[in-house]
Design a protein around this nucleic acid. Structure first.
Lengths: 347, 347
DNA sequence: TTCTGGCTTGGAAACGATACCACACGAGCG
DNA sequence: CGCTCGTGTGGTATCGTTTCCAAGCCAGAA
């Protein structure tokens, strides 16, 4: 049986080194104002015992926990996992750990997760709100004594900092691009209509289409391959079949693409396709799919940066904490590939 | 200015409710052995003050931190993000938080991350070792008073629990499948040769190829599109061009596929392709790509389950902790699609 | 010589929760 | 009537660290 030694404490180190706890404390906090010889001796004991400070005790004594909480709908989704990766990097650069929780967009799970994170007294909170309108969420976040930054979706009617994309403008750009190609009957395909991001994209689509005096065709039933197939077949068999598809999110784009491919409907000859949110193989499939690209990594990074700025402000002098733009809106980018009818330059 | 109230403490609740701290403690821990009236009164005060127990204090008093650490190479990689998602779910089911850190397969970053996690006294550790052979890692993990489960890659020469895939057998199955199709010159494409998983897969490839008395062709230079293009062109222009590719990992498979497509080399007519590790669009691209599939979600789940079992054992009676299989090896599955020459049943 | 001041150093009080122990009180029993 | 027992309750030491305060020491100034 490997007999594992429990964690030695600071006092044990002190006793072993023949000094007081104060001195050891000073040593592990940089060793300032400690006699070089004492320093070396204590360091040796620390090394020998494999001493590692107990963060819980430090925290208790009034210090930060050196952790931040991240609350996201899913880790498996590339959009969020890339956000998380960026946030993690910033946390690490600030000597903090990331506590990760997932909500599956369920407000109840979200509240529970926040509850646990707050019990753990994370220094800050990054959250992708399941429901931008939730009053419970807003109240909790405003009541709690912790800096918060919302990611991807703002918290309505609050002064909570947020980093989101300009989904509205992005959707306009995408839809307008299809219009510029001469498509007349553009359908907006989606599987959601409650999420903030999706609503914004639908709003953008509607705006562009109405401005061009085209008809507004929206199908909100696309949740998987099956439903996509049904929706697209119905649409194409209808009296006025669409000649282009604007898909409001990643999975919708993919499902639509799979259906068109399975049905042997040539893209973009019979129907064009443009999706919101880029994905790894978008440029590999045939035809390559045109998309509105979001600065995924930047979203996570900026959010985390703002959070740590807030932490610094809090700690520092009573200077105005409003130094930072609290509502960041990042711009999207149209990536022209072939599915919209473009002949993109061969890279 | 929104004046945020700091966190109230247990004693404040006690004072406010006119009871002792002991009673409040009992209330928040289930309310057993407390007079119903007192219980209600204290609960009301807790509600009013928005009291939330301080986990750091609880931890200090000898309890668990209710956190586990996860150390992975990357979050953006779908394989690991799916592992992480599964592990997170188990952690949550066990009322624990996940502390997430990423290493980019850098042993130094790995040691640093472990250091931080240990300072935080996570109750357990899940780790995807950057280097299975690392002696420093093994020593640290064996010395530390924390249960550890290795994921995807074992820690060599140690009794540390692990959950990995049978990469060797999987690679044999895949290679053998190509052999069964009649391919004679199968090249193994890879971009790594240090990682445990890749080495096992190469070992499997070699075994199958040698057993069939075919020549063993290995190219370890495929790191991105550029290098893949160079490698494949060289191979095809060589004296004895390969008729099949066995790619040892996800990104290699994709790069190879992109090159073949760009070069207009028909798959599988001119050259067949089979990859290790499934990915979302493998069945969508044309031709659909055959792969060896790993039970990704199960890896993360099992690892976390074993970890929590160990935690329970530790806490419980001195019963033999060897109740669980400590070295779990999960089997892979061949998914026949079209890129290997199969005509899979239309789903 | 005595005093001032910079370095080192240690004692001990917090931080917030838990749990051991003790105590009060009324009921049931011999 | 005195005893035990069970229920409800509170006092207080404790976990491991930081930090305030004080003190010891020696050099240089007065």
């Amino acid at each position: 049986m490997k007999k594992k030694t429990l964690h030695p404490t600071l006092s044990q180190v002190a006793r072993e080194a023949g000094v007081g706890t104060t001195t050891v404390s000073r040593v592990i906090n940089g060793g300032h104002r400690v006699n070089p010889e004492t320093l070396a001796r204590v360091r040796k004991v620390i090394e020998r015992l494999g001493y590692m400070p107990n963060q819980a005790a430090r925290t208790l004594k009034g210090h930060r926990t050196k952790t931040i909480g991240l609350v996201i709908p899913s880790i498996a989704d590339p959009f969020f996992s890339n956000c998380a990766e960026a946030a993690q990097a910033i946390a690490r650069a600030n000597d903090s750990l990331l506590m990760l929780t997932v909500t599956s967009n369920d407000p109840r799970a979200e509240m529970e997760n926040l509850d646990v994170l707050i019990r753990h007294r994370t220094d800050g909170l990054l959250i992708v709100p399941a429901n931008s309108q939730s009053q419970m969420l807003r109240e909790l976040l405003e009541r709690v004594a912790v800096p918060v930054v919302a990611i991807d979706r703002p918290v309505a009617d609050s002064s909570i900092a947020s980093v989101v994309c300009d989904n509205f403008k992005g959707a306009i750009t995408g839809t307008q691009h299809l219009i510029d190609h001469g498509y007349k009957r553009i359908v907006c395909l989606t599987g959601e209509s409650t999420l903030y991001t999706i609503r914004e994209r639908m709003r953008g689509y509607r705006k562009a289409v109405e401005q061009a005096r085209l008809s507004c065709i929206i199908d909100t039933s696309v949740k998987d391959y099956k439903s996509a197939e049904y929706a697209i077949k119905s649409l194409l068999d209808g009296p006025e079949p669409p000649d282009a598809i604007f898909a409001t999110k990643n999975s919708t784009t993919i499902h639509a693409f799979e259906v068109l491919q399975r049905l042997n409907i040539p893209v973009p000859q019979s129907i064009a396709l443009l999706g919101f949110d880029d994905f790894e193989l978008a440029s590999t499939v045939r035809p390559p799919i045109s998309v509105i690209q979001q600065p995924v990594e930047e979203i996570g990074r900026r959010a985390a940066e703002i959070l740590f700025d807030q932490l610094l402000d809090e700690r520092g002098t009573g200077s105005p904490a409003t130094r930072h733009p609290l509502q960041v809106k990042l711009q999207t980018r149209l990536i022209q590939r072939a599915s919209c009818g473009c002949t993109p330059p061969t890279p």
